[in-house]
């Protein structure tokens, strides 16, 4: 008798799922504007960059790496969108939760551990990334810019790319006292990556000595992965490299996020 009761109460879900539900439930109250932006922004970007600038490019250069400019640029936009979602969810919201609103302090007053909060939060960002990835993939297909079944992996790549940024930035944000440094992160990390990760033009445009510098940018690996998936051809060696870089960022970021949040909430 005793045993059955206890078995009945055994949790089949890990504890962090509560943190995930919390973030989901919170989102449900405020979803409207962000759902529209999830659908609309990639569409607008593709229309503006792909069609508008694409028109200029095809008039002058013709094809880029054997493709129309729209096709070339579309997977890169997916990678950028994933990075932006991951980054925006893990800087101000996390600082707010440990400093201003102190929701994480409230959460650790329950049976949740700091590690559960990190996992729940990142799982939630992952969920959003996945659905954003699905919407984007459909949008890109709608513009006729996909030509491989590998494109079906694009939503998963969006999750990987987004979390590769979200985890380390969450680790960073949970140690901050003010948002002053976030501006520098934007200016010196996010924006340069956005501009220089061979997103809007191919790597071949860079002079040889700059190419290794571009390869140092995490977003470049995300863009390269997304492009390979969309076009369905890749070299195994470089795929392994791209996946290792992003996976490594996620792994290390996750580890230090858990550690930093525990330290922050204990003080």
């Amino acid at each position: 008798m005793d045993r059955t009761i206890r078995r009945g109460r055994t949790r089949t879900w890990p504890r962090w799922h509560r943190s995930l539900w919390y973030h989901g439930a919170f989102y449900l109250q405020t979803w409207r504007a962000s759902v529209i932006s999830t659908f609309l922004f990639p569409l607008l970007y593709l229309a503006s960059m792909g069609l508008g600038v694409g028109h200029l490019v095809s008039a002058h250069t013709g094809l880029v790496e054997g493709r129309s400019y729209l096709r070339f640029v579309a997977p890169g936009l997916l990678a950028i969108t994933a990075m932006n979602l991951g980054e925006s969810e893990s800087m101000w919201p996390v600082l707010g939760a440990v400093k201003w609103v102190r929701t994480y302090h409230a959460a650790v007053a329950t049976p949740l551990e700091p590690e559960d909060i990190v996992l729940g939060k990142l799982a939630w960002v992952g969920v959003r990334l996945f659905f954003t990835g699905v919407v984007l993939t459909i949008t890109i297909a709608f513009f006729g810019a996909l030509n491989s079944w590998w494109a079906l992996t694009l939503p998963l790549l969006a999750v990987l790319i987004g979390l590769a940024f979200a985890a380390p930035l969450m680790a960073f944000a949970s140690t901050r006292e003010s948002d002053a440094s976030f501006t520098s992160i934007y200016r010196f990390l996010i924006i340069p990556m956005f501009l220089f990760s061979a997103t809007f033009y191919p790597m071949s445009q860079y002079p040889g000595y700059l190419r290794p510098v571009v390869q140092l940018m995490p977003l470049y690996h995300g863009v390269a992965l997304a492009r390979s998936a969309a076009f369905g051809h890749a070299e195994v060696g470089s795929m392994v490299l791209h996946l290792t870089v992003l996976g490594g960022m996620l792994f290390l970021g996750l580890r230090s996020a858990k550690k930093n949040l525990r330290r922050r909430l204990a003080s």
Partner: peptide
């Protein structure tokens, strides 16, 4: 950064 990015890349393509 923005102007450099344009100068390196899109200038040639466009």
């Amino acid at each position: 950064f923005y102007l450099l990015s344009l100068g390196i890349g899109l200038n040639h393509l466009v």
